[in-house]
Design a protein around this nucleic acid. Sequence first.
DNA 1: AAATTTGGTTGCAAGGTGCAACCGATGGCC
DNA 2: GGCCATCGGTTGCACCTTGCAACCAAATTT
Lengths: 147, 147
Amino acid sequence: MKRKSFETDECPVARSLEAVGDAWSMLIVRQAFAGDRRFGEFQTSLGVAKNILTVRLRKLVALGVLEQVTPENGGAYHEYALTEKGRGLYLVLMAIRQWGEGCGGPADWVLVDRRDRKPVMPLAFYAHDGRELSVNDTELIPAEEVR
Amino acid sequence: MKRKSFETDECPVARSLEAVGDAWSMLIVRQAFAGDRRFGEFQTSLGVAKNILTVRLRKLVALGVLEQVTPENGGAYHEYALTEKGRGLYLVLMAIRQWGEGCGGPADWVLVDRRDRKPVMPLAFYAHDGRELSVNDTELIPAEEVR
DNA sequence: AAATTTGGTTGCAAGGTGCAACCGATGGCC
DNA sequence: GGCCATCGGTTGCACCTTGCAACCAAATTT
């Protein structure tokens, strides 16, 4: 049967998963942040089958995560670039990366502030006074209750 | 053909996607945070086919995201609970949620600090002085360069 | 004890995944 | 301009996964 779609789901998590709830799509986004732009670059860096890549790229373009752009060197081959929306996935990607590093081996890479080249604060929830909050310190409540 | 596995991939993102790069698995985790514990709760809250749910729950247990616990009321049916590792996915889940809300409709739910019930700082990268950093303000560099 | 709920398993149809072969258009080179 | 390699796919095929419904044993309720 056709895979169930979450596009119209009420929950924003489920809707997002339409774009991101697929290993190849997320890895394509990772590579886009790493600088990949052309079909062939994605193909060799990921080792994904070309037909799969075709479908995934098209889906990401349709969802507004990537867009096809014509390269400034005037070449005829178009390239794939992250849109503003796509760049918003950086946080998701880094959250996943942090989780993957958290359990197991040492962190081989560190995210630093370009200005002073010092590591950024670990990705976490922070209260207004800067305290780091754990899961249990937070609660998800309806927006109107907090006006 | 069998789906490609990322379990042994070098990149922590790819390894994480073994657990999380699947829409149902992520939604199961979402429901686990929402309080679902029993097979039937997941089944009705997600509307997922039972055979699929069986496989996903087993995988999440095998990966150490969930664990089977015997309920304190002494019932014979076991329940599924998030492990410490699984609880670490909260950040990933919230990053996905924030992204999904960011593009489009209004934010219906707000994550607040339990202590003062005020919204937490938006999920983002922060420098040590508290400045919020954009994607371009940061850089991923090898760990040894920052010692 | 009988009926119901729970937590699955099984069988099936249809769609998705991965691989390799093929193909037209582009670009590089002489 | 002609030749050849590369690029960006498409197609066909075998196998796997997904979703649905039917079934079932053990636990729970009545």
